[in-house]
Structures are given as C-alpha cells and as structure tokens.
C-alpha cells in the first residue's frame, strides 16, 4: 500500500518543531508499524535527509520504549498493543497517518518523536520498592503462602511497562494509572505491607511534583494502555492514600 505520513519533526528540546509530510510506497500489510518507519528512514538516508528519531528497542511489546501517538491515539488504533506491535494491516492503501510524540508537560520532547520520561524514574525512586537488601539472607520463598488470587492480581498490576501511554492519552496528563499499578502490586502482597503508607505518600508526592495532572475519571488511560492495566488500580491507590493519611 501507499501512504502519506504527517510526522512531528523537532531538531532538539529548544526547537519549535512542526509537522512534515512524507510519502511511502509498497508497504506490506505484514510489516509492523516500526518496520514501516524503517522503510521511511532508509528512504530519507538515501536521499540525504535526516531520518526520524524515535524510541524503540525490544520490538515485542515489553520494554516500553516505543511511544508514538498515531492518528490521535497513543500506540495507534489497535487495542492491547504497543507501537512496535501495531501492524500495517490496521491501515489501508491511500491512508494519511499522523505521527506525534507522547505529549505531556512532564514528558518534554528530546528530538522528533523521542520524549524524556525521567519523571517516571523519579516516581519509582520515591518509593517503588520494598526495602530489603539483596544479601540473600531472606526467608524461604514458600515461608509466606500468598493466595493465588492475590498473586495473580499483583501480577496483573505489575505488567505495566512504564510506556507513558496513559499520560499521553489523558486530557489532564495524569500519571495515576502508572503509579496506581505500582502501588497496587505491593499493596496486594504481604511483603509490601510494612512500608505501604510511606510508599503511597512518597510516590504520590513525587508524581505531583513532576507536574502530572489530576485524575478526573475519564478512563482514556485504561483504553489506551497496551497492557490492560485496570482503573481499579487507581481506586486502590486512592484507598491506600486515604488510609495512609488517616494513619498519619
């Protein structure tokens, strides 16, 4: 198929940036979206232009690196996939596709489609862990049985890949789904109980400091999240937060 691409080009953090049109031809429906971008870049290099910078690494939907806002949706039109798992069979010959970076005040653009997601790192550093040393002096893994249900639910929350699609999809640029997922994982497990109150307070405080917006329950994040992280995690985080503040 032949396509028109409207792509955000921005030379660096200070540059204003603009949308630029490109044409690609002979795109196979079996290609992944990023393979289509590879074709474009090869074309740009051969014609002496600068290729489009974009983040990607694993190309199998797990590292959370890829981050394109395609036709007005984070990770594009398909559901339950990252940009790298999106396939060209979702488009048809003659389509025009707009491609932008994940936008949010807390995710400044570095170049073209690449954004800076260090805010997520700092939130994790604020409390996304259990304070246990890695010396190996721990009790046996089976010493505390954990119900299958709790383990499965914790696992579901833990599958967040930290991509930031939730933030990019939210009209308030809220990071509640991302933070809620991490808080939930530990809140659901006995190992996480000891520091539960401090964890949620510190992570939420850092989230606010980074300039992410509030959650007004529109639920766009859940729809666009490639890993199906549920809104329940936000509710759980709110309960944890209340509980923590009641305890003081």
């Amino acid at each position: 198929m032949n396509l028109t691409l409207k792509i955000w080009r921005q030379k660096g953090p200070q540059d204003k940036g603009q949308m630029v049109d490109y044409k690609v031809t002979d795109i196979s429906e079996h290609m992944s979206f990023l393979e289509m971008m590879d074709v474009l870049n090869e074309q740009l290099i051969n014609s002496g232009d600068e290729p489009v910078a974009f983040d990607h690494d694993c190309r199998e939907g797990i590292c959370g690196m890829c981050s394109m806002y395609i036709n007005g949706e984070a990770h594009g039109p398909d559901r339950g996939v990252t940009t790298c798992q999106l396939h060209m069979r979702m488009f048809k010959d003659g389509d025009t596709i707009t491609i932008e970076p994940f936008r949010a005040a807390a995710f400044p653009v570095i170049k073209d489609l690449v954004v800076d997601r260090m805010a997520f790192e700092r939130i994790q550093q604020a409390g996304g862990y259990i304070s246990i040393n890695t010396s190996g002096n721990t009790q046996d893994g089976n010493a505390i049985p954990i119900s299958k249900h709790a383990a499965d639910e914790a696992m579901d929350a833990a599958t967040c890949i930290g991509c930031g699609a939730c933030v990019a999809s939210c009209k308030n640029s809220s990071a509640m789904l991302f933070v809620g997922a991490k808080v939930s994982q530990y809140a659901l497990l006995p190992q996480g109980q000891v520091e539960a109150a401090d964890r949620v307070k510190n992570m939420v405080a850092q989230m606010d400091l980074e300039g992410f917006g509030n959650c007004t329950n529109t639920g766009a994040c859940e729809i666009e999240c490639p890993k199906g992280i549920s809104l329940e995690n936000i509710a759980r985080m709110n309960r944890e937060f209340l509980k923590a503040n009641v305890k003081g």
Binding site: T138, G141, A151, A154, M155, Q191, G192
Partner: peptide, 14 residues
C-alpha cells in the same frame, strides 16, 4: 528465588 520473593516479585502460585 527467596530474594526475589522478598522483593515482591509476583511469581505464579498454586
């Protein structure tokens, strides 16, 4: 395994 369980790694359980 003990170490990872202590860290909160949600291994599959029966």
């Amino acid at each position: 395994i003990d170490q990872c369980v202590a860290q909160g790694v949600p291994f599959a359980r029966d």
